[in-house]
Simulated assay, not measured.
Amino acid sequence: MQNTIIARTFAEAFYDIICDSKDKKDLLDQLSFLVKCIDEQHDFHTFLITPKVSYVAKKDFIEKVFRGKLHDTLVDFLQVLTNKGHLSAICDIYREVESLQELEGSKVKVFVTTATSLLEDAKSKIKKTLEKKLSAEVVLVEQVNADIIGGFIVRVEDTLVNGSIKHHLEKIGNCILERSKTYGI
């Protein structure tokens, strides 16, 4: 949870910086390329995440390897991450930046969790209903989790609607336990 908050915070800061830049597309492409390199190069990834490598060594590395090859804004951002001790979160930050880019304009990302995969007709109906309710274009992200037994869970940003059967059964069970305590059963 803490890593998600850190990644989202830095992603929002980076996205705010580049939003009005004429080089926005280049910056996003360069960040994408960098993250791809990190994912593909195990040694590079290890270098970034290991606490045994000092932040000074990491800063020097970033300066020598990337300055002049990547956009200065991106290199400066990497230096800030290094100073704050969050360079290892760059991949998570990139995923959050992707989400922000996806949501640019009047789009809203909605996560729908069901016990089984939704049929296309059901997805379409859910999407239309949510678009009407939220007054925005919905980017539907389907998640399947058999543990919820049935029903659905919908998450929009920080709002969660839990209509799962598992959730309702837990509420009923808690209610029965409370009543049994009240009546000494």
Rank of each mutant, 00 (worst) to 15 (best):
A57W: 08
F33G: 12
S21I: 07
D29M: 12
L103W: 03
V156C: 05
Y183C: 10
D92I: 05
L177V: 15
S32L: 09
G173I: 06
H86E: 04
I5R: 04
V161W: 11
G150T: 09
E12M: 10
V56N: 10
K166G: 03
F111Y: 13
D26Y: 09
D29H: 13
V35L: 08
I49S: 14
H86V: 02
K125Q: 10
V138W: 02
T129L: 12
T73G: 01
D29Q: 13
N145R: 13
V97D: 02
V108Q: 01
V112D: 00
I176F: 14
D158R: 04
D16H: 13
E63F: 12
V112T: 03
D26C: 09
H86L: 05
F10W: 10
H86K: 10
L134P: 01
D121K: 11
R95M: 11
T116E: 11
A146C: 07
L100K: 04
L103P: 03
E170P: 00
L103R: 14
K25M: 13
V108N: 00
E170R: 10
F152K: 01
F111P: 01
F66H: 02
V80H: 02
K25L: 13
I172A: 10
E131V: 08
K59S: 09
D16S: 15
T159R: 11
E157Q: 13
L118E: 00
F33N: 15
I6R: 00
S117A: 14
Q41Y: 10
E178T: 12
D20A: 13
I5H: 05
V141D: 11
S54L: 07
F77C: 02
R155G: 06
L48P: 02
S106G: 10
G184R: 12
K58N: 03
K22V: 14
Y94C: 02
I38W: 02
D16C: 09
T82N: 01
V65T: 11
K127Y: 02
G184T: 11
G151C: 07
I49T: 14
F33T: 15
S106W: 08
L27D: 01
S180K: 15
K69M: 07
D76N: 14
K132C: 08
E102Q: 15
N162K: 09
F33V: 14
K171Q: 10
D26S: 14
K127M: 06
L160K: 10
R67S: 15
E137M: 07
Q101D: 12
